[in-house]
Structures are given as C-alpha cells and as structure tokens.
Amino acid sequence: METTKSIKIIEEMMRESRKSLHRYSVYFIIWGAVMGIAGLVEFFLIGLIDTAWIVWPIAGGIGGALVALSQRKNDFRVETVFDRIMKYVWISFGICLLFVIIYSVKSLMPPHALILLLAANATFISAAITKNKALFVGGIILVVTAIISGFFIEGKWVSLVYAIGMMGGYFIPGLYTKKNEKA
C-alpha cells in the first residue's frame, strides 16, 4: 500500500467516526417545549385551582416518554468521548434536579429558580463540549431567568419566567442546532 493512500485512509476514517456524534438537539427541543408549555399552563392555572403543581409530574411523564421514543431513532452503535461526558453531565443534572424538587417541596418554596440554574449549568457544559454557540446563549438565558425568578418576582410570575427560560434556553437553541445538524 502506498504511503499517500495510508494518509487518505486515516483522514477518511477519522472523518467518518466524527459523523457518529450523536444528535442531542432533539432532547433540548423536547424538554424545552414540554417544560415551557408546563410553565405556561401552571401560570394560567394558579389562582384557578389549588393543585396547579400537578402539571409538573404530567410534564415529566410526557417528556420522559418522548425522549424514550426519540432514543430509538438515535444511533447508539458507537460512543465517542463527548457522548460519555454528555451522558454523565445530564445524569448528574437529573440527580440534582430530583434533590432540588424534593428539598423545595419540603421547604415549601418554589423550585423554579434552582431548576433554571441547574439547567444552565448542564447547558453551558454541553455548549462547551459540542462547541455550540446557540446552547451557550441558551445557558445565558437560563441564568438570567433564574436570577429574575429567584430575586425579582413572586407568585404566578415565577411560572411565566420559568416558561420563558425553558423556551429560550432549551427549545429555541435546540431548534437552531437541529437546523445546523441537517446542514
């Protein structure tokens, strides 16, 4: 085999393996849409019924089911180092999220600001790993909405800002990323 051919093979196969990077945009779109809509529904329900919080377990169930469905379509026959890091970042986010929700319920305080902050953390790491500017902007939106809902507003407005945070931090960057993945 000629040496120039060796170089060509190495370049081609390294390029081929890079194509195997998983498509993560779908998860941002799903969770952004589901949590954004849930925040809006809670915003309109507060004042109408006493159990407006019921939207969250329902939204969690719907989001989880949609993610499970989308995972069937994803190519999991190869794992890159980036995939492994992303997996652990979001597993860690899930564990912290569960803790925050339980702690907030126990302390009788709304968890929205803390959830937005946790989401911002995981989104910033994802942005750095995938070199995705849209996700970086999403992380900034999540931090800003976390600060607003944590310090400047109260009551039902927290749900509205949470919805804006999820739409701006997850959903819109997810859509933008998906468009670029296709290109």
């Binding site: 093979i9 196969m13 393996s17 190869v78 794992e79 180092v81």
Partner: peptide
C-alpha cells in the same frame, strides 16, 4: 488501518 483510524476517535464501536 481503517479500523484503527476509526477507533482512534471513539470510545467503542459496535
């Protein structure tokens, strides 16, 4: 060479 070059960028492959 193709196999080893592909594996250089990934953790594992099926």
């Amino acid at each position: 060479l193709s196999i080893i070059s592909f594996l250089a960028n990934v953790e594992w492959v099926e």
